[in-house]
Simulated scan of single mutants.
Amino acid sequence: MNLKVLCFGITRDIIGQFEYKLSLPANASVADLKQHLSTQFPGFATLKSLRIALNEEYAEDTMTLNENDEIVLIPPVSGG
């Protein structure tokens, strides 16, 4: 299935674009997406935390992705 992922903050820097398109097998999970990103972009290994939002809600690794889902990478936040 074809997916579109929106990237913010450091995830945008790592991927090099705001919108990343990829293809994963049907019934792929959030964990599968994370694995794909780590394989394609080694910079993801340096992130201490990364959240993924699926249709405007935080997603668990076991959730199944669908082709029309809105997928957003939410990078770790720092401040002072």
Score class of each variant (00 low, 15 high):
65 L>M: 08
32 D>C: 05
7 C>D: 03
29 S>H: 07
76 P>W: 08
13 D>C: 00
19 E>H: 10
5 V>L: 06
49 S>E: 15
24 L>Q: 06
65 L>F: 03
24 L>G: 11
33 L>F: 05
5 V>H: 02
25 P>N: 04
25 P>F: 00
22 L>I: 15
61 D>E: 14
76 P>L: 00
3 L>H: 08
44 F>A: 04
62 T>D: 13
6 L>C: 05
53 A>P: 05
17 Q>I: 14
72 V>A: 09
16 G>L: 05
60 E>S: 11
78 S>N: 11
6 L>F: 14
39 T>R: 12
47 L>E: 07
11 T>Q: 08
40 Q>N: 13
35 Q>N: 12
28 A>W: 01
60 E>I: 01
46 T>C: 09
76 P>Q: 06
69 D>N: 09
35 Q>L: 12
32 D>H: 13
21 K>R: 15
24 L>N: 01
17 Q>N: 10
73 L>T: 06
9 G>E: 08
49 S>D: 11
56 E>V: 06
46 T>S: 15
28 A>R: 07
7 C>Y: 06
45 A>Y: 13
39 T>V: 14
41 F>L: 03
58 Y>S: 02
72 V>Y: 07
39 T>E: 14
52 I>A: 04
78 S>C: 08
78 S>R: 10
30 V>L: 04
54 L>R: 00
39 T>L: 15
78 S>P: 05
30 V>R: 09
40 Q>F: 02
41 F>D: 06
34 K>H: 12
69 D>S: 06
64 T>W: 02
32 D>A: 10
18 F>N: 12
6 L>H: 11
45 A>T: 12
37 L>S: 11
41 F>V: 07
48 K>G: 15
64 T>E: 00
49 S>I: 12
30 V>D: 03
78 S>W: 09
2 N>W: 02
75 P>C: 03
76 P>G: 05
58 Y>P: 06
21 K>M: 14
41 F>K: 01
54 L>D: 02
17 Q>M: 12
26 A>T: 09
78 S>K: 09
27 N>I: 06
10 I>D: 02
38 S>I: 11
20 Y>N: 04
65 L>G: 02
32 D>R: 11
